[in-house]
């Protein structure tokens, strides 16, 4: 066990965990931020996507010991009250079915638009291909990203 000082959603948080613990489980079970989801544990589904210094990463493959002072943003910290353009577009297009993958989808989409504010359809497909939606809401995800990019 070791103590780590993390910057999460703009706040300083301290956790005492095994250094190998993935950020996913630190968020979910030590910081009570359960919006970030466990789906596969092998970075193949994207449900655990967070932002590290603004870049999308799969938190299930990110040992807490490697984070250091890098800023972590989770779905809970993406906006103050759910009013990020991507979140609003998600509601506008009523994207979700079961909803389990959507936090990861939204974090990927927000990262895409930050780096590429006007993505082509191909850009969206290429960027979002790491996020699985078992319910098959991909069409609406794509529509919502296009809508958010126009705001």
């Amino acid at each position: 066990m070791a103590k780590f000082n993390l910057k999460v959603n703009g706040e300083s948080r301290q956790v005492d965990v095994d250094p190998s613990t993935p950020v996913l489980w630190v968020l979910r079970e030590h910081l009570n931020l359960t919006g970030t989801k466990y789906g596969c544990g092998v970075a193949s589904c994207g449900a655990c996507t967070i932002h590290l210094e603004g870049m999308p990463v799969r938190s299930c493959q990110l040992p807490v010991s490697t984070v250091k002072q890098q800023e972590i943003t989770t779905i809970e910290g993406l906006s103050a009250s759910g009013d990020h353009p991507v979140q609003e577009a998600w509601i506008e297009h009523d994207v979700a079915q079961c909803g389990y993958c959507q936090a990861g989808q939204i974090m990927s989409a927000a990262a895409l638009l930050k780096n590429n504010p006007n993505p082509s359809e191909e850009d969206i497909e290429a960027f979002m291909t790491g996020n699985i939606c078992r319910c098959g809401t991909y069409l609406r995800i794509k529509q919502a990203i296009v809508a958010a990019s126009q705001k």
Binding site: E29, T36, Y38, I75, A96, G99
Partner: peptide, 23 residues
């Protein structure tokens, strides 16, 4: 008439609502 998912806001803000989230 199309009505939006009542859980829509919770879903996009990552509120705990799934069994996995329960503690």
């Amino acid at each position: 008439q199309s009505q939006k998912n009542v859980d829509g806001h919770k879903i996009v803000t990552g509120k705990p609502m799934f069994g996995m989230d329960y503690t």
